[in-house]
Design a protein around this nucleic acid. Structure first.
Length: 259
DNA sequence: ATGCCGAAACTTTTTCGA
């Protein structure tokens, strides 16, 4: 089974690139983040023509996650119990969903950014991770993979220049502790192989030629239960998808699982 | 060459991203 995750930064703006990538990479299951469209507006017909069932969770302009599968898409759940609401919001944002695909419980996650450490958005980010931990703890009895944009660089090696991130979000001990809490559930970080350079970065800012200088971050992660992690045959960052006209600022991660 | 920010909307600037 080929599993993939990709923050597409608008599924509408990225639709030609998405369809092209699906036809080429042929994942069995794809987790999408930052779809930036409502569930009703999700291009289900277009991906359906390539053989994918789709489920989407989104409310419009911001956030949004989706799951595509050609090996079954059952028991879809949107959000999770105890998910906190956004800052100054009355309802949770569209940042999490799950489905059972080919015998695997698959989550597509888009963690809050946090903005700055003194922002209420940072406290919200940590609360969101704490609630996510409890939600995933209830699902560890089955083969589980939690994929997505975690908006946390697990180690200093996961940012191009740690000195530039001192005092910034994405690298704080509390954020890294939140990831460690997920690993303590038994989830393992499936670290992909970079196509170029020593670091498997998955995100490069659009600005200032960051991609071309390989100044990136590894913030998109695949967290797999031990049984699933043991089935991993290969995993890589498809940085080709970050090139060319109209790319997302994130590259997909592709994971091949054995039986 | 990978090639120097992009998406969305209560749009003609502002908000957000990390």
């Amino acid at each position: 089974m080929r599993l993939a995750t990709w923050n597409v930064n608008s599924v509408k703006a990225r639709l030609p690139r998405l369809l092209e990538w699906l036809a080429e990479a042929k994942p069995d299951v794809l987790c999408l983040q930052e779809t930036k469209c409502s569930a009703q507006a999700f291009p289900a017909a277009e991906v359906g023509e390539l053989g994918y069932a789709a489920a989407a969770h989104g409310d419009g302009r911001w956030n949004g996650v989706a799951l595509l599968s050609r090996v079954g898409l059952d028991d879809v759940t949107l959000g999770f119990p105890g998910e906190p609401t956004g800052v100054e919001a009355v309802a949770p944002e569209a940042r999490a969903m799950a489905a059972t695909c080919g015998g695997l419980r698959v989550w597509s996650l888009y963690a809050p950014n946090g903005r700055t450490v003194d922002s209420p958005h940072y406290a919200y980010k940590l609360a969101w991770f704490a609630a996510l931990r409890d939600a995933l703890a209830a699902e560890t009895a089955m083969p589980l993979v939690a994929c997505g944009d975690y908006n946390v660089a697990p180690t200093d090696a996961d940012v191009w220049d740690p000195a530039l991130f001192v005092g910034a979000t994405h690298v704080t001990p509390a954020e890294r502790r939140a990831l460690a809490d997920l690993r303590e559930l038994g989830l393992r970080d499936v670290v992909p192989t970079p196509m170029k350079g020593p670091h498997p970065f998955t995100y490069w800012d659009y600005r200032a030629g960051m991609f071309h200088q390989n100044k990136g971050m590894r913030i998109d992660l695949v967290y797999a239960s031990a049984d699933v992690a043991g089935r991993v045959r290969s995993a890589y960052v498809d940085r080709e998808a970050r090139k060319g006209k109209g790319p997302s600022d994130h590259a997909p991660i592709v994971v091949d699982l054995g039986p």
